[in-house]
Structures are given as structure tokens and as C-alpha cells.
Design a protein around this nucleic acid. Structure first.
Lengths: 117, 117
DNA sequence: TTCTTTCACAACCAATTGGTTGCATACGAC
DNA sequence: GTCGTATGCAACCAATTGGTTGTGAAAGAA
């Protein structure tokens, strides 16, 4: 349970059902029972999924009479985007340097067209 | 093993060690032994982690004598970014609509905010 | 050839996960 | 108060995961 936030978010979204739930919540808040409707699993199972999303900070719960509607906290997604983009960019830059090196290597034979998209 | 690619990528990056390995690979290709160096786990354990990354399509292997260097396939990260951004944007738009509705609400009456389903 | 290095595969074990069911609780209706 | 709905919590089970060790294959070096 003591995993870092980023791992929790990644793990939470590794399950197709939970990604589905997140997608569903972009359309509007929903109770556990409403979320469980499309699936043929028990509401308890969905409740567990929601708890995972909640622990990851992706979902917050409200209170409306007996219902406790789930609300998507989309900002947490930025955590992942930040991580991904960081290393995506690092990899890209490395590839660019590598390409440049190769181009320099073959300078006499094949001048490199600027293929750095 | 029959999970969809997106789930595999999310699950692969849910482990801090594997995220570390990916980060390490942005600096350059590396063998399993080199990757295992900083950790106090067996090379076999690292080999398993690499296999997970490989199954997710994040890493490809080469051949250099006995060494089988790991190479980062960064394009797969775009899969995740696409998913995240899609729902991030959907959530943002919904919030904007909600805000607009609330602003309208203050100007006139109260036309039931939660009934957008 | 034999030795060493690098690594994958198989078997095994402990911990976690995703599901179940049953019971308890919170709230509104009666 | 009692009843019904929505939900959480605990216990349990099967499957998966992350680690281990042992064996063995592939590719050079001696």
C-alpha cells in the first residue's frame, strides 16, 4: 500500500475495467451502482475498483443522500503525462544525436536530410 | 498474456524498477547485466523485468556477441499519451461546460446540473 | 576441445490481485 | 422506531506477480 503515487496511477490504469470507469466518469459523476451497470460483476467488485482509483487519487467521492458519487480528478493524469513526456523526449534527443553522429560518419557518402520530426 | 497492448504498457510501467530501466535506456542501450548493476537483485529478476517491457513492446533486443543489448522503443509511449490526453481533454471540456452552466445558473435559476447522462 | 560470460527457461515460493459472499453501516422513506 | 437502498468491510479463493535457485544454451577466449 506504500507504493509511490506514480506507480499507483499506472497500476490503476493497467486494468481495462478501471480505464473504462475513468472514461465513463469523464461524462459525469456516477455512483458505484451506476458504474457497475454495464458490467456483469458485482457492485462490490466495482467498489473495489473505485477504491483503487481513489487510492491513486484519480477519483474522489461525494455524498448525496445514500449515494456517494464518484468524481474524476483529472489533474492526476498530468503526473503520468509528465513522466512519459520526460523520457519520451530524452529518448528522442538521444536518437537525434545518434542520427547526427551517423550522418557525420557517412558525411562523404550520404548527406543527411533533416529527418528530425 | 492476452491482455491488450495498452494494459501491458500501463502494467509494465507500474513498477518503479521497470520505470527506472526505461529511464536508464533513454541514455543508451544496455545489457541485462549492466541494467542489473545498480540493484541488489539477481540478473534473472532483471531479465524478467526486461521480458515484461519486451512483451509490452517498450524494449527490443539486439545481439552483440554474447550480449543482447536492450533498446528502448519510445514510440509505444505515444499509445499511453494518446489515451491519457483523450480523457484528460474530455474531462476538461466537461468541467468547462459545467462551469458555464453554473455561471448561467447564477444568472437565472437552477436547471439540475447532474442530469447530463 | 574446454572454460567463461551472458542470458533464457523451468520450477518453486511468498505476496498481491480480482473476484466472490456475507454482514454491518449510513441515509432517507415509512 | 422499522424497512429498503447504497455502500463499505472482512473473509475467503483462484490466478497472477516478483522474487529465488538451478540448469543449460550461445558465443567468444584459452
Amino acid at each position: 500500500m506504500a507504493a509511490d503515487r506514480l506507480s499507483q496511477v499506472f497500476a490503476a490504469l493497467a486494468d481495462p475495467t478501471r480505464r473504462d470507469i475513468v472514461a465513463r466518469l469523464t461524462l459525469g459523476d456516477a455512483s458505484v451502482a451506476e458504474l457497475a451497470q454495464p458490467y456483469d460483476v458485482s457492485t462490490q467488485a466495482v467498489s473495489k475498483h473505485v477504491k483503487v482509483l481513489q487510492d491513486a487519487g484519480l477519483v474522489s467521492r461525494g455524498r448525496d443522500a445514500q449515494r456517494r458519487p464518484c468524481h474524476l480528478e483529472a489533474e492526476v493524469l498530468d503526473l503520468m503525462t509528465a513522466w512519459i513526456e520526460r523520457y519520451r523526449r530524452a529518448a528522442d534527443e538521444r536518437f537525434r544525436r545518434l542520427d547526427a553522429l551517423l550522418a557525420q560518419d557517412q558525411n562523404s557518402e550520404r548527406p543527411e536530410p533533416g529527418a528530425a520530426s
